[in-house]
């Protein structure tokens, strides 16, 4: 794959910023705009840009398709797991009040956990979409 030096340099500059911004949107989503969905697609967009510039094999060495597949289900499991954790702690499913004595803190913990689950699943699904489409052309 031929790549233009301009594209490569610009991507090198942008990809870390995109991923960092994704993490910011993920963990600052409670206070500013954003959240798991947005963060997931932003991080995935960063990975896809990397794959477009450096090629699919190199990306899949860094982020193997199997790992992406596992992450896909881990995110959903984390979300559903928080629900079961609140049941075990003596509250209703996904009622975060049981997670901490202080209710506001409990809500914070619950929201950060489930948003992280959302972000993981969304990013992994988007990346696996890209792997599936891009990988098919080569076989």
């Amino acid at each position: 794959m031929r790549r233009s030096p301009i594209v490569k340099e610009m991507s090198d500059l942008l990809i870390p910023a995109i991923v960092l911004f994704g993490l910011y949107v993920q963990f600052h989503g409670d206070f500013g705009p954003g959240g798991g969905f947005q963060a997931g697609v932003i991080v995935a967009a960063g990975v896809i840009l990397y794959a477009l510039v450096y090629g699919l094999p190199r990306t899949q060495r860094l982020l193997p398709p199997n790992a992406v597949r596992i992450l896909t289900s881990l995110g959903l499991l984390l979300y559903a797991g928080v629900g079961f954790a609140t049941i075990i702690l003596g509250s209703e499913y996904l009622n975060y009040d049981a997670l901490h004595a202080d209710k506001i803190r409990a809500q914070h913990i619950g929201i950060i956990l489930i948003e992280f689950g959302v972000g993981t699943t969304v990013a992994a699904v988007m990346i696996s979409f890209f792997y599936a489409f891009a990988g098919r052309g080569r076989s």
Partner: peptide, 11 residues
């Protein structure tokens, strides 16, 4: 949370 959207979606 200051962001009501997140409160509604996540809680």
């Amino acid at each position: 949370l200051p962001n009501i959207v997140t409160s509604v979606l996540a809680s």
